[in-house]
């Protein structure tokens, strides 16, 4: 089914339906169907090679599903131009991958793609949110790992996304930066009432950040529910 169904209300801001990706005979993502309400923070948890990042890449359409699709506000995402889709579904990756230049240059990158120039005030406000108020003119090559991730978060927010995808945003950081960036994400997500899908291999982190948890194994959902339910079930398993 393609396109927006006029008779169908769109209660979910994001919905995946039978989302799958198969590469060289291997199922990386296998029949994932979830619904995400506006303002939901959903953690996608699982061990290495469980398909968490592959799932997130499909939602941003960096990879093409081999079956199933994603609906964004009820509209099949294949009907949305990829650039517009990626603006609406912004992604923050494990490594910051900042573009050469200043912090401000990085923040301007997304809006500039659609011909908008981010004002100095907007840049200051974004940097203030991520605790880098005076760093707009700093060269990104001088930033620490934690600061680079903060810039990466601000850069993703600069696109004013409907949904924010976080792919293990703290896993490449040292312990102290990890705590700082996690608290920052939590604060920013709450302040902006963001809808968020966050991939992590750490169930404890998922329980601190998310309201719902999705557990993946070999590309498939093995458990899904509220953070409380999942923690209870996982504790009983141990």
């Amino acid at each position: 089914m393609k396109g927006k169904d006029p008779g169908r209300p769109a209660p979910w801001i994001l919905e995946t339906k039978h989302l799958s990706r198969m590469v060289s005979g291997k199922r990386l993502v296998d029949d994932i169907s979830i619904q995400v309400e506006r303002g939901d923070v959903v953690a996608v948890v699982g061990p290495s090679a469980s398909g968490k990042s592959s799932f997130l890449r499909l939602v941003n359409r960096l990879d093409e599903p081999t079956a199933g699709t994603v609906y964004l506000e009820g509209e099949d995402y294949r009907d949305i131009p990829p650039r517009e889709l990626r603006r609406q579904v912004s992604m923050m990756t494990q490594t910051a991958f900042l573009f050469p230049g200043t912090v401000a240059d990085n923040l301007r990158f997304g809006p500039r793609q659609r011909g908008k120039d981010l004002s100095e005030e907007s840049i200051a406000a974004l940097l203030n949110q991520v605790g880098l108020a005076d760093q707009a003119r700093s060269d990104v090559s001088h930033l620490s790992g934690g600061e680079a991730q903060r810039v990466s978060l601000a850069r993703a927010l600069a696109n004013s996304p409907l949904v924010l995808l976080l792919d293990e945003p703290t896993s490449a950081l040292d312990d102290s930066s990890k705590q700082e960036v996690e608290s920052l994400i939590l604060r920013v997500v709450k302040q902006n009432a963001l809808t968020c899908l966050m991939v992590t291999h750490d169930l404890a982190q998922a329980s601190r950040v998310a309201g719902r948890i999705l557990i993946l194994k070999a590309g498939k959902i093995t458990r899904m529910g509220s953070t409380k339910e999942i923690l209870h079930a996982e504790t009983n398993l141990q």
Binding site: L62, R83, S90, F97, Q113, N159
Partner: peptide, 16 residues
Amino acid sequence: TGLIETALALGAGSKQ
């Protein structure tokens, strides 16, 4: 690859 896909994920055109 990381930089290219980051730019794509932020809405940049492939050629750019």
